[in-house]
Simulated scan of single mutants.
Amino acid sequence: MNDDVVAECTRDVSRVAVLTGAGISTDSGIPDYRGPNGVWTRDPAAAEVFTCTRFMSDPTVRARFWRTYLGHAAWHAEPNPAHRALAALESNGPAIRILTQNIDGLHQKAGSAPRKVLELHGGMREVVCTGCRTRTPTADTLERVAAGEADPRCTACGGILKLGVVLFGENLDPNTVALAEKVAQACQLMLAVGSSLQVEPAASLCAVAVNAGARLVIVNRDPTPYDHLAVGLVREPIGVALPRITAALAAAPPDATPVSR
């Protein structure tokens, strides 16, 4: 997408929604899932670890899950230029809300206000007991895994512990979905960044935005099921493209519509 198209897509925009997927974090050293070198592309069987039914019924699946997160790259990852560009836009541009499919917390670490980041699939910093619903820091559970507990249980009730994320087969929190839909309906520009747009209902937020009159720009290396709805398709690296788009948004004069930040 050339500079003229960027300027046209960002013109008169005072409300931006950004849907982010795993691709925005690959430059931070966190592998994506479905790309050519993605976790599930290289090892399709690994996806079953993230299936709720298998996780809840099979202790060997849970053991593999906890081993995976014991050494997960996200624990030491730092935000990259794409995360920082979105964070900078908060104080120097239109009102922005981030709807992320990621669980790594890098948007907040980059400086995005937590209240402006909606984690559609949960976050990896907490563990929840599936029995008594007690939430505890993930670090506590991983310490137990590192010490030799393959399938640690809740210390309060003995229930199965699960990372505070949405697994395949689980429904997203309805309040989170409702809020995300409101953000999508209210935005003038929807940026879909680094997402394959294959996981619903998060991907359908693109259609929600377009149906409400917003422009859709997709920044992703590979084609997506929603490309036909977009006014702009960006295939260049996210760490290059997103700072360029946010710079255009910061420079463009907003429309006259008052908006609360």
Rank of each mutant, 00 (worst) to 15 (best):
N2G: 05
D3Q: 07
V5I: 14
C9H: 02
T10H: 02
V13P: 02
V18G: 05
L19E: 09
T20K: 10
G29A: 02
G29Y: 01
I30E: 02
G35K: 03
N37C: 03
W40D: 09
W40S: 11
A46H: 14
F50C: 06
F55W: 10
M56S: 12
T60H: 09
R62S: 02
T68D: 06
L70E: 14
A77Q: 13
R84E: 11
N92T: 08
N92K: 10
A95P: 00
I98D: 03
L99P: 04
Q101D: 09
H107Q: 01
H107C: 02
H107G: 02
A113M: 00
P114Y: 04
K116T: 00
M124K: 09
T130V: 09
G131W: 09
R135V: 15
P137A: 11
P137L: 10
D140Q: 13
E143C: 04
R144P: 08
R144C: 09
G148E: 03
D151R: 08
P152T: 08
A156H: 01
G159L: 00
K162S: 05
F168W: 08
G169R: 13
E170N: 14
N175W: 12
V177N: 07
A178H: 15
E181A: 13
V183R: 05
V199P: 05
A203H: 02
A207N: 06
V210H: 10
V210S: 12
G213P: 02
G213H: 08
A214P: 04
I218Q: 08
N220D: 06
R221S: 15
P223N: 14
L233T: 05
E236G: 15
P237M: 09
V240K: 15
P243G: 06
P243M: 07
T246R: 04
A248M: 00
A252G: 12
S260K: 09
R261V: 03
